[in-house]
Computed example of a mutant assay.
Amino acid sequence: MRCEEYGYGLGGLDGILVLKYASASHLDFGESRQDLLHQLYWSPDGVLAAWHRRETSFVGSHEAYWVHRAVTHEVRAGDRQTVYRICLREVPPALAGLRAGAVPIDAAAGELIREIAASGVEVRRAVAARARIMTGLGPPADPGHGPENKGTGYAVTVARTLSRDPADPRTLADWADRLHISVKTLQRDFVREFGMPYSRWRARLRLRASRVLLENHQVAEVARRVGYATPSAFITAFTREYGCTPGRYSTPAPGRARWQDA
């Protein structure tokens, strides 16, 4: 695992510390309690699994996982994945009162996180970026409603909900009915947002989520958790996507019952 650390204005409330992790294997931040700093985890290229109070949340690239200081939590990522861990002294305005949970992050905030996680960035520029990152975080989204800007963002709304529960069985028609739009409109929005139709996007999400879980769960359990009807269907899809069977990644370890019980 490689970790790069970038800190700006750390002596004041408006400071920000960004830790950038990249690894060829699974990332496991372990159980931690940060008494001094709030934590924000975000991965632009994969799925995170986060544990808090015996509940497991999956978080896709359109969301980040927020943890208030002094809150015990655990976060895991899959192999060949980049994760940013942002440490703050202040609570973003939209997240007041939230102890831990998935929160929307807009595209501009994500780009700024990547920009300041680099060498040679001026402190003034990074502190200004921090202010924009703070406002780019929204309160936990209500998955039962469409986007505020009618006519756009429907695919992102569905993506956020599915990222939390990849096993959600709802079809494209089910989502369109829930959002009060046509199936064609939702399908077009998926192609516009993600460059692929709904079925392909959901399949990739499920497989990415499976890679987060395989190190600590058996293949059959992972297949069920990410929405496959049978282990054989999961193995076939995984092998087609990655060129190897999921058994290569699955190494169940003792003493991790809280993940299995979550």
Rank of each mutant, 00 (worst) to 15 (best):
E111M: 13
V121M: 13
E148W: 09
L88M: 13
P93Q: 07
D142T: 11
G195V: 06
A155E: 04
I86P: 01
A100I: 06
L137D: 03
W175M: 08
S210P: 01
A126P: 00
L205T: 03
G110H: 06
G195K: 04
V158T: 01
T171C: 06
H217A: 14
S163V: 06
A100F: 05
T161Y: 06
P140C: 13
R85H: 05
A118N: 07
G144W: 08
A102W: 04
E221K: 07
G138Q: 10
R204I: 03
R208L: 12
A94K: 10
A117I: 07
A128K: 15
Q187G: 12
E221T: 13
L207F: 14
I133M: 11
N149F: 12
A109P: 01
A94D: 09
T230R: 12
R160E: 08
K184P: 00
P166L: 07
I105P: 00
A126E: 05
A131G: 01
A209Y: 03
L88R: 02
A128L: 15
A131L: 04
W201E: 08
W201F: 14
G97L: 11
G120Q: 08
S199N: 04
G146W: 00
P169K: 07
H217V: 14
F194L: 12
R202V: 14
F190Y: 10
A126Q: 05
A141N: 05
V222E: 02
L172G: 04
A131Q: 04
R125Q: 09
R124W: 08
V123H: 12
A173S: 15
L214M: 14
L112M: 14
L172I: 15
R208Y: 09
G144T: 03
F190A: 09
F190M: 10
R85V: 03
R89M: 15
A102V: 05
R204V: 07
R202Q: 11
K184V: 15
G120V: 01
E90T: 15
V158P: 00
D189Q: 07
A118E: 12
D174G: 14
D177A: 14
S199A: 12
S182P: 01
N149S: 11
R160S: 09
R132M: 11
V91W: 10
A126L: 02
Q187L: 10
V158I: 06
Y228D: 12
L88I: 04
A223T: 02
L205D: 04
A223V: 09
L98N: 07
I113E: 06
R125M: 04
Y228C: 10
V103A: 07
G138I: 03
A118L: 05
M196N: 05
V127T: 15
R114N: 06
F194R: 04
A102R: 12
V191K: 08
A117G: 03
Y228E: 13
E111P: 00
V156C: 00
V127Q: 15
P140E: 10
W175S: 05
W201D: 06
Q218C: 05
I113P: 00
F190T: 04
